[in-house]
C-alpha cells in the first residue's frame, strides 16, 4: 500500500516549482508575443527601387490551393508588366506559403503579422496598398 500523501506532495512540488518560473501565458494585448522567424502570417509585397517587386506573373494565384489571390497585370509607360491589382482574401487563405515558394522574383513574403481580426468581411481582403512592405 503506497503512502497516500506521496502523489499530493509530488503535485505540490510541481506547483511550487512553477511559482518561481517565468510565466508561459502572455498578458495579451499588453504583452506581445515574439513570433518565430519562419512564422507564416499576413503576406507582404516586397519593394525594391521604390516599386513593388511583383511582376504580375500570375504564378501565386495559380498555385494557391485556396484560390484567394487575385492578380491583374497592367502595362506601364515602358511597356513593362506590373500588378495593377494584387489582392489576397485572408478569410480564405490557409497560410500554406505556396505563393511565397512559387514566386520567381522573390516578391512575396509572409510576415509575423497575425492579428487579422476585423469587423467587416470586406476588410479581410488585403489590397496591394495594404500588403506593400512599409518602410
Amino acid at each position: 500500500m503506497p503512502n497516500p500523501f506521496t502523489p499530493i506532495m509530488q503535485g505540490m512540488k510541481i506547483t511550487l516549482g512553477h511559482l518561481f518560473k517565468k510565466p508561459i501565458t502572455l498578458q495579451y494585448p499588453e504583452e506581445r508575443p515574439k513570433v518565430a522567424e519562419r512564422f507564416r502570417g499576413l503576406h507582404g509585397l516586397k519593394v525594391s527601387h521604390n516599386r513593388a517587386k511583383c511582376v504580375a506573373c500570375y504564378l501565386c494565384p495559380t498555385v494557391c490551393p485556396a484560390k484567394c489571390i487575385t492578380v491583374e497585370a497592367g502595362e506601364d509607360a515602358n511597356h513593362d508588366k506590373f500588378a495593377a491589382v494584387y489582392e489576397i482574401d485572408m478569410l480564405r487563405c490557409i497560410f500554406c506559403g505556396y505563393c511565397v515558394e512559387a514566386c520567381p522574383v522573390d516578391a512575396l513574403k509572409m510576415t509575423g503579422e497575425f492579428e487579422l481580426a476585423n469587423y467587416r468581411r470586406e476588410d479581410f481582403v488585403f489590397t496591394k496598398e495594404r500588403l506593400l512592405e512599409k518602410k
Binding site: C57, K81, V105
Partner: peptide, 8 residues
C-alpha cells in the same frame, strides 16, 4: 524573362 513573357 518568363514571368513577364505572355508566351509563358
Amino acid at each position: 524573362d518568363c514571368p513577364v513573357c505572355d508566351k509563358g
